[in-house]
Design a protein around this nucleic acid. Sequence first.
DNA 1: CTGAAAGCGCTTACAG
DNA 2: CTGAAAGCGCTTACAG
Lengths: 357, 357
Amino acid sequence: MRKVGKSSLESATREVKVKKITTINDVAREAGVAASTVSRVLADSPRISSETKERINKIIQELDYHPNILARSLASKTTNIVAILIPELTEKAFRHPFFPEIIRGITAMAHKYCYNILLTSVSDVKEEKKYIKELINGGIVSGLILLASRTKDPCIAELRKSKFPFVVVGRPQIEDDVNWVDNNNMSIAYDLTMHLIEQGHKKIAFVGLTPEFVVTMDRYEGYKRALQESGIEIEPDLVLNGKYIDDAGFELAKQLPAPRLAYTAVIACDDLLAFGIMKYLNEKGLKIPDDVAIAGFNNFPLCEYVTPTLTSVKVNEFDLGSKAFQILYSNIEGNVKSFNRSIIPAELIIRKSTQKQ
Amino acid sequence: MRKVGKSSLESATREVKVKKITTINDVAREAGVAASTVSRVLADSPRISSETKERINKIIQELDYHPNILARSLASKTTNIVAILIPELTEKAFRHPFFPEIIRGITAMAHKYCYNILLTSVSDVKEEKKYIKELINGGIVSGLILLASRTKDPCIAELRKSKFPFVVVGRPQIEDDVNWVDNNNMSIAYDLTMHLIEQGHKKIAFVGLTPEFVVTMDRYEGYKRALQESGIEIEPDLVLNGKYIDDAGFELAKQLPAPRLAYTAVIACDDLLAFGIMKYLNEKGLKIPDDVAIAGFNNFPLCEYVTPTLTSVKVNEFDLGSKAFQILYSNIEGNVKSFNRSIIPAELIIRKSTQKQ
DNA sequence: CTGAAAGCGCTTACAG
DNA sequence: CTGAAAGCGCTTACAG
């Protein structure tokens, strides 16, 4: 189906039978004025007399005229559409409630500013780069939101070169001339680790470090700093790499040394991992939190329903999305050229999985 | 922020400083041919010699040329974008996992066919109708997907008049000249009710009937038919109206007559309602399923995690979305004019909440 | 096999 | 306050 060598925006060209649609010229003719006058009425230009406006607006109503946005955008070099670029939309990872919530946040804010969203999903980085170029040149969107920033993201590099307005959800590795939003991942991970240390834990595992994703690196930094400040040495055995948005927690847990002996607490980079690890601990006959405490990130609704309830970090995805749009918007419409970042504070939600009874 | 009297697609007109972008004319000049030739190379027209194609394609590469889709669409009267119209995206109801999954299904299939998705959210029916007209006339999209069909949907009426390609997720009230996808809601509700009857229940409550939404009416029909066929009379007291996608189950349950006496089983039109009702029954000190059995719809992930696990109906949202796009696609690109519907079979997932031990 | 010209439906200097 | 004209960047009959 996908035509070779063409990607979404580029393939087109097909016959089509459209029913005749009212244009600006129809309105102009009907009103006995020039199309330019109708155009100015549409834009509510102050240079048109209010009588003319009224008269023409009435005709617009009567003819049920709606301007062709394509033509308008082509002429004015402006659109009210921004694209969200979603890597691997079809993948399992994308079913994480995190992403829909971000998109909701973006869309809600976009709606406020009379913008629309173009959802573009890509399958791999190569396609992504190509796609970005098409979007930049295609004229359809006036800005871009990248979901999830990776270390050494080639797309960010591409976009920086192009001077096209864009914003990244997730701190990029090179921050300076990029717009981005993120949580205070480092400090919230620090807080979470401190919370565990306060509960008496010294051997704390960290699961789900994904070097590809800055967010997990940041969380790991916070973890390290808390341990160091508390005079606890970092045990490389207790730090486990792994895809952080994944249901592989059960399998990952097997790679850790003996629970309760080698470690008495676990931080997982995502709740889904944490659920898998809880299952593993349960099957080993260990008590949570008495034998091993555990905490996750992202505050799945499920956190409230598992036994014991799972301590987690609420990241406020909706706000991340809203803020991302706002930054993009001011970049597109604003006259001051600037790069902005915004930190959405995450919240530590302490539940039973980390509180000894 | 939202400018009065203008809605998203219509507001525009702003100054913008774009860096010079390569056009088809640049390529033509560089190659010493006419723009029309370059255009034909882009379309891989058989009328161009392969030497010319090769030569021009090389220049396109060198200049990193990407066609302006806006201009192309305007000239060719064709786009590869379809819109999803989402009512009340910002509302709580939309956080139901059902919707993101449908959108995932749509987007995944769209990606296969090289289409993109325009997400357009609206706040109320009035805005929706206006928006539809703008979309139809705006030239940006070549088709429309409506999420959730209501009884007497004014948008469907509008779209039918316009002859614009569209598909509705959810059976519309007037089916004939509308494309739609839906589950076999009536028969799956019938099956579910029969399952309860087989478990010995005769007094079965039905909660969450929302006359505005065809889907709940269909489920109610299935429920009624199963009772009738089993010679059980329908008790109006046991049929409770209410917003079906809502967390008001707890409150709704209070409106039912005495549990265990007046009814021994409940069907809720959505799992979220069912969870609330379970909570109510628990607080009343009633045992599920021994005193009262309960089942929901939509198969929330949570169904597996509540105690007892909740019997539900898996609706395969992803497939609903995929199929919706496919139908729309064949409507846009196909040459045979036809109206199509597709039924995605739902699955009854029987869990402990309806099985006596 | 290729080109010149018209046209898609708008906006926007430029004139008056 | 309004209009005629050019132009946005493509595609597509029409010619040859």
